[in-house]
Amino acid sequence: MTKTLQSLTHLSRLTVVPPIWLFTLACALFFTVTTDNFAEIGNLTNILQQTSTIGLIALGMTVVMINGNIDLSVGAVVALAASLAVGLQSDIGTLPAVAVGLGSGIALGFLNGMIVWKTGVDAFIVTLGAMIGVRGLVFVYTQEQSFFAMDFAYSDFGMSQTLGLPTLAWVFLGFTVVMHWVMTSTVHGRNAYAVGGNREAALNAGIRVGRHMVVNFMIVGFFAALAGITLSTQMGASTPNLGREYELWTITAVVLGGTKLTGGAGSILGTLGGVLAIGILRNGMNLMQVPAFYVLVILGAILIAVLFIDRQVNRAGSEEVEA
């Protein structure tokens, strides 16, 4: 057992690609063999489109989690942005409505970030409060009604194709590339690792930790809002219950992708792998006609298993006392 774990440790040191991709590829291979339709282009693009919502939120969540924070309010922001973007379009036009929706996400991110920074209350509690409050806001605003997009261009967008791929898949992949670049190549992105990895050292080195975290909360707010809007274009509508439990799915994807809850480690590539793993599992099991219920059990089990393996791999060679 220890031997295997040690060799796993070595393996993870050699590979540049986050280890979750092994799992993702194994799943893809498995479903290619066991089902007839999995490997068809149409199905693969389908997966991309289906995962784009959680995927977009996960991009932002990765950044705040690398910071050592968390955002539980993303699901509620999804509903708020979708409701605003759909509900306002007959009054102020589609594009301004979309802008308001995105703006609401960024503004709530700013609010969350400022509270975390200035009050020193843990992000978990701050965003748990926001999650409840923003959902209330959505219900108050919508009067518990679903809104339907009157602008058909809006709902057409969600179903449209560009260069042979669903447009939403392009949106997701495009932002993935952008965020990968931000996290690997920009000063802000690199500082995110410093803040999460050793906050004291980051402060001592003159990184403005508070402002930095606020920016990241705005990033995740933006992505949650964007995900809400893309989701509502797919549905041609918004409902006040949209995005429930999305925070849980997003965190699952990000943790599967190798981002640590304690911060300081993680990557956009890993998150992409985690998002796709969930998407492929859901899709593949659907094709195998496994009832959706089993997928929930399997995903929960996989999340815990990944946590366990990760801990074993990281602990191998540590000399700390297990107290």
């Binding site: 000063v187 690199r190 500082n191 410093a194 990895g197 003159g206 990184i207």
Partner: peptide, 18 residues
């Protein structure tokens, strides 16, 4: 030590001043 383990040597040397 006040280093960030996940970052490169160069990034640590220039921490806060990349």
């Amino acid at each position: 030590l006040s280093l960030v383990p996940e970052m490169s040597v160069a990034e640590n040397i220039f921490l806060g001043a990349l």
